[in-house]
Simulated scan of single mutants.
Amino acid sequence: MSELTPRGEGVAGDPAIQRRLEAAWPADLPPSDERELLATGRALLRADATGIGRATWPEVFPDSGTAVAPAFAVARFRIQAAIARRDGRADRAVVHLVWAGMDRGGTFTDLRITDWFFTRAEKKGAATWTWQPRT
């Protein structure tokens, strides 16, 4: 397998990052769970980095009712690769994201890493994945 693309490769390097991540950590969740977790993990990261959508998760972003300057410019933020995998047990998962963004100071950095942790619980007869703080 080819080496991980060098920093600064841009969007063209993102597929190689995704392939490398998938090869390093093989899939171990049902496809429907993986899709749900990836969608939620991506939305959480976007909300965290850009401020957009924070009100959706008041337990994650308790300050979402106040004006918060985004840490990263929306136009200069992208998720380069993402996977969702079990985190030790069948009822726990982690969404591992590799991303790029330009901060308020104008510094652009790629290959940033964020992990979001979830537990699976029954709610009203249906299983759902719920974000968990890392303690």
Rank of each mutant, 00 (worst) to 15 (best):
A27E: 13
A27N: 09
A27C: 09
A27M: 13
D28T: 02
D28A: 05
P30H: 10
P30Q: 09
P31F: 08
S32G: 08
D33G: 05
D33R: 11
D33H: 06
E34K: 01
R35G: 08
R35M: 06
L37W: 03
L38P: 04
A39S: 13
L44F: 02
L44K: 05
R46N: 12
G51R: 00
G53I: 02
R54M: 04
A55L: 09
W57P: 01
V60F: 05
F61E: 11
D63F: 05
S64M: 06
T66M: 14
A67R: 12
A67P: 13
A67L: 12
A67M: 14
A71C: 11
A73G: 12
A75K: 12
A75D: 10
F77Y: 05
F77M: 01
I79Q: 07
I79L: 05
I79A: 03
Q80F: 07
A82L: 03
I83C: 15
I83P: 12
R86F: 09
D87F: 08
G88A: 05
R89G: 03
R89K: 11
A90D: 13
A90F: 10
A90H: 13
R92T: 04
A93N: 10
A93D: 11
H96A: 10
H96T: 13
L97F: 04
V98M: 03
G101L: 00
G101I: 00
G101S: 01
